[in-house]
Nucleic acid binder design. Structure first.
Lengths: 211, 211
DNA sequence: TTTGTAAATTAACACTGTTAAGTATATTTG
DNA sequence: CAAATATACTTAACAGTGTTAATTTACAAA
C-alpha cells in the first residue's frame, strides 16, 4: 500500500498517534517540556488540531498516566509467581521502587502530579481513581494474604496497606526529588546515593518482619 | 554611617519587600501562579527590577522555602516541652501532618518541588540542604532518645529516622495531592476525607508501639 | 455541480521567564 | 562648578506557553 493510504490510515486514529507523540516527547523531556506545539510538530499537524481530540493538556496528562499504569501492571506480573504472600509483598515493594527509579516521569504523572487526577473531577466528581484503586487493591489483597499466614495480625487490612503504600511512596518521592541524598549525615555518606533508599527499604522490611 | 551603608540598607529592604510580596502572592495562589510580573506589580516596580535582587525564579523559590522552614521550626517549638521521647516523636508526627495540611503550598515548596533544592546545586554542588538536614536532625535525635528508653532497639538510628520521615512524607503528599481519598474502598468511605490520613497515622503509631 | 459538513488551519489573546539596551538620577572626580 | 562615572531602574523585546474564535480546506451527499 502507498504512503498516501498509510498516511490516511494514520489520520484515522489520530487520537492514538497524538498520544504516542506525546509519550515519546514526554519520556525524553518530561511532562512540562512536552508542549502542545511540540506534540503537533511531532505528528506534523497544527497545534489546534490536538484540541479536536483532547479537551486540554490535563486530558493528555490523564491518558499518559494511564499508559504509565499499563507499564506498572506489566512489572507487577512477575509477582503472581511468588507463592508466599510476605515474599510477594517484599518483592512488590522492590518492583514499585524500581519502577519509580526507571520511570521517573511516569511515576510523577501517576502518583505526584495533580493534573491527571483533577481530570477525573471534571466530568464526574465521585468517579474514583480506577487505576490507582486497582493497584491499591493488589497491595491490599497481598496484605490480607499475609495476615492469613499470621503476619500483621494486630492491624486492620486497609489501614495497614495504606501505611505500606505511604511509606513506599514517601521513600520514592524523597529519592526522586533529591531530598534524600541532600540530608545524609556523615555516617551514611559512605553509602552511594541510591543506596540510602535501598538501605531505608531494608529497614522497612526489618520492621515488617518484627510485627 | 556613610550614605553607602544607607544605600546598602535600602537595597536589602527592597530585596526583603520583594520576598514579602512574593510570599503574599504565593500564600494566596501558590507558587506557579506567582509570576515575576505579579510580584513586580505588588511592589510597584518594573518586572526586571526583580532580577537585580534575585538571580532567577528558583532563587525566590529557595527564599520562600526558607521562610517555610521558619514556620515549621516555630510549630516544632512545642515539642521541646514534651519530656518523654516517644510521646515527643508521636507529637512530632502530628505537628508535621498539621503543618502540611495547613500550609500546603509551603509543604510543596519545602518537600516536593525540585526548584528550591536545585538552587543549592547551582553555586556549590556538595553544599547540602541545611534546612532539611536540621529538621531531619531533630527527628533523628528524638529517635535516638527513644532508643535510649528502649524503643526501636533493633534498628539503626539513621535508617529508622529516614523510614519515619518517608512514611510521614508519603502520607502527607498522598493526602495533599488527592490520591488518598480517591483510593478509599467501601469500608473506609464511611470515614471523612481527612480521616483516612489520620487513621493511617494512628496505624503507624500502633506499628511503632509494637517494635 | 452545488451544497453541507467535518477536519484542519491561521491568527490571535493573554500569559510566562528572561535578557539586552537605554534612561534618568545621584555620586565622584577633574 | 562642570564633566565623567556609577547606580538603579525601565522599556522593549525574545521565545516560548495553553487555549480559543474565526476561517479555510477537503470531501461526501444531493
Amino acid at each position: 500500500m502507498g504512503i498516501r493510504e498509510r498516511k490516511q490510515k494514520h489520520k484515522e486514529d489520530l487520537k492514538e498517534s497524538i498520544l504516542q507523540a506525546a509519550k515519546k516527547l514526554f519520556l525524553k523531556e518530561g511532562f512540562e517540556a512536552t508542549s502542545i506545539r511540540k506534540i503537533a510538530a511531532e505528528i506534523e499537524f497544527s497545534p489546534t488540531t490536538i484540541y479536536l481530540y483532547y479537551k486540554d493538556k490535563t486530558e493528555i496528562a490523564h491518558a499518559l498516566h494511564q499508559e504509565g499504569f499499563k507499564v506498572l501492571a506489566e512489572q507487577f506480573k512477575v509477582l503472581t509467581h511468588i507463592e508466599h504472600p510476605f515474599e510477594r509483598l517484599k518483592a512488590m515493594g522492590r518492583v514499585y521502587m524500581q519502577f519509580a527509579l526507571e520511570n521517573r516521569d511516569f511515576y510523577e504523572l501517576m502518583f505526584v502530579m495533580k493534573e491527571p487526577i483533577d481530570y477525573l473531577g471534571q466530568e464526574c466528581a465521585d468517579h474514583h481513581w480506577e487505576e490507582g484503586a486497582q493497584a491499591f487493591h493488589q497491595l491490599l489483597s497481598t496484605v490480607k494474604a499475609c495476615q492469613e499466614k499470621g503476619y500483621f495480625k494486630k492491624f486492620e487490612s486497609e489501614s495497614f496497606a495504606m501505611l505500606v503504600w505511604s511509606t513506599m511512596h514517601g521513600l520514592c518521592t524523597l529519592q526522586l526529588h533529591g531530598h534524600l541524598e541532600k540530608v545524609v549525615t556523615n555516617k551514611q555518606i559512605l553509602l552511594g546515593v541510591e543506596d540510602v533508599m535501598n538501605h531505608t527499604f531494608e529497614t522497612f522490611v526489618q520492621v515488617l518482619e518484627n510485627l
